[in-house]
């Protein structure tokens, strides 16, 4: 019992210590978002100041902020759902079947994530232009699929390998089709993995600056491009509003994390089934 307590104490100690490190810049953004313009650039930096909500009010009253948010939401939802719809069955096929060229296909998917966007930007823009996808939500969504597909396929592959296959075999004997097995047997028990890759994929899309910049012009302006355009001037950064907008734009992510948290904390009681 004594070991158990020390263990707990050490865990809390390191969690608190790391939390300070991980929260520090966000805390600073939080403070900046409540300052007026002079306070944001005061020297020495101010920790105590008269807070103002004007930054938040201005951001929320800005129609373009909402337009950019809608662009981001549309692009993220399209790319994440499409990537999951093709990625999870793909991972399933890799783990449950043996077929020729399997490893080559898996490595090819992995390699789509290896080349940095900057290196292939020019020919990629040309390709999107060829397919008439420039400055469209579908075009940016397709580019975002490139960002997340490898993660979905390979992480799901690792998760699915750990899942018991007895249930699937039972379902197969009962005469269920493959797609039905994926839908009603595999998906439910792989939920922690699916939720995790969904959240990560969403983040990859939500935070991407590069493809939104090079593939979008007028009709698609996702949040990262809008935030930097609106709040970084030629002469200076509008820290108050940038911080406020930056924090506001994490709102959809917070919702996703809350959903994810429920799934994660509950964890799995799969052991009983497998046993």
């Amino acid at each position: 019992m004594k070991y158990f307590k020390i263990n707990l104490l050490v865990s809390y100690f390191f969690l608190i210590l790391s939390s300070v490190f991980f929260i520090l810049p966000i805390l600073w953004m939080f403070l900046q978002s409540f300052k007026n313009a002079k306070d944001t650039i005061a020297i020495p930096p101010k920790i105590f100041f008269t807070p103002t909500l004007s930054n938040y009010v201005k951001v929320l009253k800005n129609d373009y902020f909402w337009e950019a948010t809608i662009d981001s939401v549309v692009v993220s939802l399209m790319s994440v759902s499409a990537a999951l719809a093709i990625g999870i069955p793909f991972a399933y096929a890799l783990t449950r079947f043996n077929f020729k060229g399997k490893n080559e296909i898996a490595h090819f998917i992995l390699s789509t994530k290896m080349l940095p966007g900057i290196v292939i930007a020019i020919p990629l823009v040309q390709t999107f232009n060829y397919f008439n996808l420039l400055d469209t939500h579908i075009g940016v969504s397709i580019a975002h699929i490139l960002l997340m597909l490898a993660v979905i396929v390979w992480v799901m592959r690792a998760f699915l390998q750990n899942l018991p296959i007895d249930l699937e075999e039972a379902a197969l004997i009962d005469g269920a089709g493959r797609l039905r097995i994926i839908w009603s047997v595999v998906l439910p028990i792989a939920r922690p993995g699916i939720v995790t890759v969904t959240a990560l994929s969403f983040l990859f899309s939500w935070n991407d600056l590069f493809f939104g910049l090079t593939l979008g012009s007028f009709d698609v302006v996702p949040l990262p491009i809008y935030l930097t355009t609106e709040y970084i001037g030629y002469l200076a950064v509008n820290w108050g509003e940038l911080s406020a907008a930056g924090l506001l734009s994490t709102f959809p992510i917070i919702i996703i994390v809350i959903l994810l948290r429920d799934n994660l904390i509950r964890g799995l009681s799969l052991g009983a089934i497998k046993g």
């Binding site: 930007a121 020019i122 020919p123 823009v125 040309q126 232009n129 600056l209 910049l213 090079t214 491009i225 930097t228 355009t229 970084i232 001037g233 030629y234």
Partner: peptide, 15 residues
Amino acid sequence: PENQYLTKVPADMEA
């Protein structure tokens, strides 16, 4: 903003 401007213009021009 200037940094992105200096990325977008050459990228689109070259492409």
